[in-house]
Design a protein around this nucleic acid. Structure first.
Length: 304
RNA sequence: CGCGGGGUAGAGCAACCCGGCAGCUCGCGAGGCCCAUAACCUCGAGGUUCUCGGUUCAAAUCCGAGCCCCGCAA
């Protein structure tokens, strides 16, 4: 078994960790994940998905607030595996293993360097993406690539389904790539920096829908942001979350709600968005039929 | 005591400010119309108006306390 330390925090990372455990290839000396964070209305501490999984498998867990000046309490080991960890890892720790640190990045590097590659390809309406496994160096998502696979995106994919598929692919690649790398069978390939593109961390405000954009653009925004931050707009001064939408071929003035044929649609610059499931401020989620029953008076109103 | 919205029939809402038989859309049941229907018409069932207390001739509505749900913030 290959002794490793795993760095990861969120759901995508926990899916990879699950595969690592199941493969039986690795001896996981420690799992490094972000500290429990206060979440929600009552500020209750929430364990990261990786921590929950690590506890389930009785793995050693460390949760430093920052790795700056931090020392890993781990006997000599071979490799760091980093997936969606979310904190900066100092060079000293990257180099603390015998063979360095590898990172799984769910994009076709050097495209979509940065923290939101899965979301960003969807938001941009791309039809292919992929997974890259790379050696980490000083710069973010910059190191030489050990392995890369392309993956075509289904127009119906959302963050949920795409992340799921990419995590499966990532796990397969990892299990195949690591032994080859350790045996010296892989020649790391330097990234071509001039082809690099970057994606940013998504903020809450990125979820605001602009109906002056096309239905397709808004639908792509929805696909990428479905899990976080979600998309929303304001009606009569109240926030409305769009929990499920689909683009439809209907011409309505941008931002105007039209209730017709038991469907609720909102006009965009081109085409319209059908609201399949929504949630209004202070209310529970509701489907279009419930909305029509109770809020027929909103017919013809405009989002702003 | 962070800010705000809310709890009314199986669902979504109205009525609350300004107290007076609790209403609308959908669903459900029965009947009718129709070649036929998820369409249309008629009738009907279904409520402790979240809980407890107060004011009043009278409370969904006003006052007080509590419980629960949700949006924001962090």
């Amino acid at each position: 078994m290959i002794p490793i330390v795993f760095f990861g925090t969120y759901k995508f990372a926990s899916a990879i960790l699950e595969s690592i455990v199941r493969s039986g290839l690795f001896e996981i000396r420690a799992v490094i994940t972000q500290p429990d964070r206060p979440i929600g209305r009552h500020q209750e501490l929430q364990k990261s998905p990786v921590k929950i999984l690590a506890e389930k498998h009785n793995l050693t867990i460390e949760q430093p607030e920052s790795l700056k000046g931090y020392t890993l309490h781990v006997a000599p080991y071979t490799l760091n595996i980093v997936v969606e960890y979310g904190l900066i890892i100092p060079q000293g720790i990257l180099d603390s293993s015998e063979r360095g640190s590898i990172n799984i990045h769910p994009s076709l590097l050097p495209k979509y360097r940065g923290p939101s590659p899965i979301q960003s390809v969807l938001i941009n309406g791309d039809n292919e993406t992929g997974v890259s496994i790379m050696l980490m160096d000083k710069k973010m998502d910059h190191g030489p690539i050990l392995s890369q696979k392309k993956f075509s995106i289904d127009p119906a994919d959302t963050y949920t389904t795409l992340a799921d598929k990419l995590s499966t692919l990532s796990a397969e690649m990892l299990i195949e790539t690591v032994p080859k790398f350790l045996n010296g069978e892989i020649e790391p390939e330097v990234q071509i920096d001039e082809n690099a593109t970057f994606c940013k961390i998504l903020e809450k405000d990125d979820g605001l829908v602009d109906f002056e954009r096309t239905a397709e653009e808004i639908f792509n925004q929805f696909r990428g942001m479905i899990v976080w931050p979600g998309i929303h707009a304001y009606l009569e001064g109240k926030r409305m979350k769009f929990l499920d939408i689909r683009p439809v071929d209907l011409q309505i003035a941008p931002g105007v709600i039209k209730i017709q044929d038991e469907k609720v649609s909102v006009g965009c610059r081109t085409g319209s968005i059908e609201l399949v499931k929504i949630q209004m401020e202070g209310k529970k989620p509701m489907g279009a039929p419930e909305f029509i029953n109770g809020y027929n008076k909103f017919n013809g109103l405009k989002f702003n």
